[in-house]
Design a binder for these strands. Structure first.
Lengths: 205, 205
DNA sequence: CACTAAAAAATGAACGTTCATTCATTATTT
DNA sequence: AAATAATGAATGAACGTTCATTTTTTAGTG
């Protein structure tokens, strides 16, 4: 059972983790947060969904809230890795920009639970997280690309926060609207229009 | 005491409402949601902050959750009214666009509690709200302006959801970053750069 | 391989606390 | 004095956490 601490280094992706008890608990929390939300989440649910006894939870986590923080780190790591994969250090910056946005959107479309979890975590002040700084780790891959574009004078020389807000903020709302069926991101043409509009916001005109 | 049902029609703004018990409760919840969040909000806190007895709450609300829904409607109404004030049916659409964004941002800068409350409410699925449709009421004023810009062929003919996402999504993230001290929206030049970038995203190029 | 004993993992009933809600009583207004 | 508003102690359900017990795994021995 304590093989897990070894495997967890390799299989960061929850979907492919060995199905030991701890992973079962993490998975069940991810699923439950999406379906019932933080507010209604309780230990009985977690244990039932994970198929373990109530006490088992406390072999792997100190408090109920700890699982949330650990899950957040896993989820953010996976997201950042997916987006960073789309980054290249050379090549047309507009193409890289588009590829990274595409990677981010595809990630969330394939993992609705991840999106819902991150959203709820981000907007719950003083809920589980100790410092607000954590929220912005999610922006690191985009930040990297943006810095490069600025250096090449292809992306506007305006405060980073503005550029990040436009890229990340609008993307988040797009995905929310997709799940609310206000728009379909399955349509490649729609996605392309979105990337183009974002690009025009941040690109030197 | 039941004068309130009369005044509440006139003084939508919580800040200027007569300080009867019900309003005291609404105010205390608004404040507490910002400081401790939905998750830690309990009846003892609400009563203490409002300066009423525990039982008093139930003279005005059926359940704990009802106050949240009622508060959301009040807060959204105030926000929409503030933004709609900046709308004019004639005049340069880019100027109107900028004025509305400015009104929205000024509203949230002056009312941090309102921003925090809306954010938490919006991102908590199945928490209090019955239907997800409610979330998009917040977009109505911007939607109105956008429709007009589209008709004049000054705003891109792309799906509404894309335009709304870019405008509203990025604005939200900007405000979050402002409160996280990543950028200062008190700086007029910064705001102007943000509006300009947003405009370039949505405007016909 | 079989047997065994020690170690580790898992269990779930029990515990103490917290919390939303109620209601008999008191205070205030009409 | 009747009606309305407000109170806060009491209630019982729900919840997170613990721990004595049971089950499973590991390691050692013949």
């Amino acid at each position: 059972m304590n093989e897990r601490s070894f495997f967890s280094e390799i299989f960061l992706c929850l979907s492919f983790m060995p199905t030991d008890k701890k992973t079962a608990i993490l998975k069940s929390v991810l699923h439950l947060v999406n379906s019932v939300g933080f507010y209604h989440l309780n230990m009985k649910m977690i244990a039932a969904e994970a198929g373990v006894a109530a006490g088992t939870f406390y072999l792997y986590f100190k408090k109920k809230e700890d699982v949330i923080n650990e899950l957040y780190n896993l989820v953010v790591d996976e997201f950042n890795q997916a987006v960073l994969n789309a980054y290249q250090d050379d090549g047309d910056i507009k193409v890289i920009f588009t590829q990274m946005l595409e990677a981010a959107i595809q990630f969330y479309l394939q993992q609705k639970n991840y999106f819902s979890f991150i959203e709820q975590y981000t907007y719950a002040p003083f809920l589980f997280k100790e410092n607000q700084e954590q929220n912005f780790v999610l922006l690191l891959p985009i930040y990297k690309m943006m810095r490069k574009g600025k250096k090449l004078r292809l992306i506007k020389d305006i405060p980073d926060a503005i550029l990040l807000s436009i890229i990340h903020g609008s993307m988040n709302t797009m995905i929310k609207m997709h799940y609310a069926k206000k728009v379909s991101l399955n349509n490649a043409a729609t996605r392309k229009k979105f990337y183009q509009a974002c690009w025009e916001a941040v690109a030197v005109s």
